[in-house]
Design a binder for these strands. Structure first.
Length: 220
DNA sequence: GCGACAG
DNA sequence: ATCTTGTCGC
């Protein structure tokens, strides 16, 4: 576990970038056997004025909701592509402080290592919580990939050097492919397999879809 | 210098 | 992300 207080609120982008480079040293990617996974969590953050609303939904493999937590916190960092974690991690961590269950893997609305410095929000928060994480984004932040044409097809997302950093996956017909990348303590193969296993008739994997659902519902 | 750019 | 209704296509 990392000493959270020293890395949560950088004052400049330069400082934030230094933190990301420091966190990169702690990044660990390894296989995650889904057959040994019992609980899966999905995270989403929405906004109401300057208040961030974080939601964490925990489900089991039968897609049954085990726990739902939500917290609010005033946002203190602007949205800057490549630095999303500094804007959303605080309220997410606040949610996890209240969480009773211990998910085996957490899915995020955003990138894992498919990031300019390999430290998307999934990787960032995974390191802070020391829990396996996976990034599931609705669009690409960094890298290039050919568009999958058939449902169930995944194409490799590669960085400027041709290294595979994730996948574009067509989870549903007539929708844009989702972008999958390992966050922390998972790897390319495991993250793709796990997300595929959690698609339940919709574009987004169930944990993330439900988190987004609750998030929007809580505001109305 | 000109684009690209998670949520 | 958010501001916002109806509407076209599975």
């Amino acid at each position: 576990m990392v000493d959270i207080s020293n890395f949560l609120y950088p004052k400049t982008l330069e400082e934030a970038e230094r933190i990301q480079k420091e966190f990169l040293k702690k990044l660990v990617l390894l296989p995650l056997d889904f057959s040994k996974v019992t609980l899966i969590a999905g995270v989403d953050v929405s906004y109401v004025g300057d208040q961030a609303l974080g939601v964490v939904v925990v489900i089991n493999k039968n897609f049954e909701v085990i726990e739902v937590i939500h917290e609010t916190l005033k946002v203190t960092f602007p949205y800057v592509p490549g630095f999303l974690a500094f804007r959303e991690a605080p309220v997410i961590l606040k949610c996890f402080e209240k969480l009773k269950s211990k998910p085996d893997v957490v899915l995020f609305d955003g990138q894992g290592i498919a990031h300019p410095r390999r430290l998307g929000i999934a990787s960032h928060v995974g390191i802070l919580l020391d829990i396996p994480t996976i990034g599931v984004a609705k669009s690409i932040l960094y890298g290039k990939c050919e568009k999958p044409s058939d449902v169930g097809q995944a194409t490799e997302l590669k960085d400027r050097n041709g290294e595979v950093i994730g996948f574009c996956y067509l989870s549903k017909k007539n929708t844009k492919p989702i972008v999958i990348s390992p966050g922390y303590k998972t790897n390319l193969e495991s993250s793709l397999y796990i997300v595929k296993s959690l698609i339940n008739g919709f574009k987004l994997p169930e944990p993330v879809r439900l988190a987004h659902h609750y998030s929007q519902k809580l505001k109305s």
